[in-house]
Design a protein around this nucleic acid. Structure first.
Length: 409
RNA sequence: GGCGGGGUGGCAGAGCGGUCAAUUGCACCGGGCUGUAAACUCGGCGCCCUAAAGGGCUACGCAGGUUCGAAUCCUGCCCCCGCCA
């Protein structure tokens, strides 16, 4: 039996309180951590939305922290449940995926997953390992232990039922399959967002029925997206991806509403509780500039998902480009054939913008020009046609710019 | 199986023979302002030609039809949703 280090009181507090929504039953989990045995920490995912957001990172960071004590992460590739599509919080049915899509997505997912979770202490399992051999009899037996009323307890099912929105029969199977995963891998605890609570509890029940020690349910808070309105999600477009390049990540974080700063710090960083309390107080009392807190947050997170150097550069980029509205230290360069572009020695700006990839269409470029949003070498472009010069800097809007080089000869 | 509702731009959702490239909201882009790519405010938001005025092309599920003219009317087809069984 692999061993695990027993956390001291401060560590225990950190593991079971910070960025935690609920642990069921709390005491059992604490006891388990004190056993000195490596626990099997299960988490599943549907390989349907390959982009991991920093919202996912909340739970993954927790897994990582527990790995530091020697516990094992068991990640389940939901290659069967993905065929159903988890309706949790979706409020509508999802389209089914092909096997190829599932495989490709799983690969993408895991690559990002291991940016946070330690690969060495992780067991990757696929549902097909056990569901591949499942027969109709097994399915019936699995379903027999639950009633429709129980299923309808689940918030999103209940809501859809009430609003007379469709609920596919196969969707009812989703929690059961996910729950059975816990039996198959003999999980000691399962992790997920608060919207997963029902599914995680089903796992407990199934394990108990199979004579296993039921898993603890460990839920983490859902991160509100950059719009400050709803849960961070890819479909809403209010997300920061763990794969976002430094500048984009930094900028997106700077755009979150002030009231989210505290939560982001709490859920995504190791910044001490006392500092977070200070930040929250400062934002609420309006005693300081929230922008400073946000810069710290953005820096922390870019450093975490990239590295400290990248974080520093992203910060500098942000300050120059947006705060001071200057050009960044490094302007991307783009080579074009001047002779092919010009007619009579000049080019139309909209055409040039398209060629440079700064706008998507000529019409778009025209609009920018009319709105006086195009700058040539730091001056607002007044003439529609301009002569080209090697090394000239073209800027469209606040944050799109390029240094133009002549690729002739 | 029966009855009814509906498919419009990234989404939601108007329009129901010409004034519709299509109201409005969200999202997005730009200007201003600022503590930030926040908030607020003003403007823009199919593609292409054009210095401009303007013009052309594609688009309102798909395919036909009526008409000088159709997102709007007719026919067929496809798809979605609800109710009753």
């Amino acid at each position: 039996m692999p061993e695990a280090r027993v956390p001291n009181d401060a560590e225990l507090d950190w593991l079971t309180r910070r960025a935690v929504a609920e642990i069921i039953p709390h005491d059992d989990f604490v006891k388990a951590l004190k056993l000195g045995r490596a626990l099997r920490l299960k988490m599943g995912f549907d390989p349907s939305a390959p982009d991991l957001t920093i919202g996912h990172a909340v739970g993954l960071r927790k897994l990582r922290q527990l790995q530091e004590f020697g516990h094992t992460v068991v990640i389940i590739v939901g290659d069967w449940t993905a065929q159903i599509g988890d309706p949790s919080g979706q409020s509508k049915t999802r389209p089914m995926l092909t096997a190829d899509q599932v495989n490709a997505n799983a690969e993408t997912y895991l690559r990002q997953f291991f940016k946070i979770v330690d690969r060495e202490q992780t067991e990757v399992r696929r549902q097909s390992e056990w569901f591949g051999a499942f027969g109709l009899a097994d399915v019936v037996r699995l379903a027999a232990g639950f009633t429709v009323a129980q299923m309808l307890e689940r918030a999103d099912f209940a809501e859809r039922y009430q609003r007379q929105q469709p609920i596919g029969v196969h969707e009812l199977l989703y929690p059961l399959l996910q729950g059975y995963d816990s039996v198959a891998v003999e999980a000691d605890a399962e992790f997920g967002g608060t919207d997963q609570k029902f599914n995680l509890l089903v796992g407990r029940e199934l394990q108990e029925r199979e004579g296993q020690e039921p898993q603890c349910v460990y839920t983490v808070p859902l991160l509100v997206g950059t719009d400050g309105e709803v849960k961070m999600g890819k479909s809403v477009g209010n997300y920061v991806a763990v794969d976002d390049p430094p500048n984009a990540m930094y900028g997106k974080l700077m755009s979150i509403p002030d009231h989210l700063i505290g939560d982001y710090f709490e859920y995504l960083t190791d910044v001490p509780d006392s500092d977070i309390a200070d930040v929250r107080g400062m934002v609420e009392e309006r005693t300081g500039n929230p922008m400073e807190a946000k810069k710290r947050l953005a820096h922390e997170l870019v450093a975490q998902f990239h590295d400290a150097t990248a974080a520093g550069e992203a910060q500098e980029f942000f300050e120059r480009t947006f705060s001071k509205r200057e050009l960044p230290a490094e302007v991307p360069e783009r080579g074009l054939s001047f002779s092919a572009l010009t007619a009579g020695g000049t080019v139309r700006i909209p055409t040039l913008l398209v060629e440079l990839g700064l706008t998507e269409s000529v019409s778009d470029g025209n609009r920018l020009f009319k709105q006086r949003a195009v700058e040539v070498d730091g001056e607002v472009a007044e003439e529609l046609r301009i002569p080209l010069r090697d090394g000239m800097i073209i800027r469209a809007g606040k944050h799109r710019f390029v240094r133009l080089l002549n690729s002739d000869g």
